[in-house]
Amino acid sequence: MGEEIGRSILLVDDEPDLCEMLSLQFTRRGYRVLTAHDGQRAMEILGAEVVDIIVTDIRMPRFDGMQLLDSLKGQDPCTPLVILISAYADLSVAAALSRGAEALFPKPFRLAELVAVIDRLLTPAEIRWATAPECARDRCLEIHLSSLEDSDVEGILKVGRGGFCVAVTNPPASPEEVVSFDVRFEQGPIPALRGAGLVRWVKYPAHGTGRVTWGIEFVWLDDACRDPVIAWLRAERPRPYVPILTKS
């Protein structure tokens, strides 16, 4: 159990019991815990305090989780990490990650998993992406593209602050599968994107034809490309955690 001295967490849920239980957990872990039972109250807290992480429900009276998420945009550089929790299945993982959230947990979720994800997200990218995953991966994504900027336009690949999305014509993978990738750019700010990632979502074409797109969260970036990628991401304007391709 990592002690997170000095970190602050904001818990937003209209279920006081859930806030209380989560608060118990994070207090024991050394967080400074703030709670709000609706979005309005959360905004007030955010205006007065510096918060590192927000764990928020989506459907709440008055000001909901998505509005909260949208209002955080542009509050760079100290935008808190946002973890959405939802009892509904109406928001897809793809939508959540592309609208600024770091993760989406359907209720009920495992507390241990939530804690693990938060621990991981609080770890600096240099360390977080330095360890190659152990599990064997037989699927490998190999793409050669002209430049990162061009590929955005082409609608093949789009990089976010925590991963990327890519259009593929491969046998489908499943969410939560770890795949390795090797994307090379002929020119541009970064030479390559090489490592392993977790498939967060798979989007199928609506009418059975067209490309399948994947949202991949970085798990590991190899030594050669890790630092350039991190430097490039920090220099860039804020990006969604894992974007979605607007045209595919």
Binding site: L18, I85, P108
Partner: peptide
Amino acid sequence: NNPLAVISVA
């Protein structure tokens, strides 16, 4: 799911 999340976390 809401109360269930509470039970589960608790």
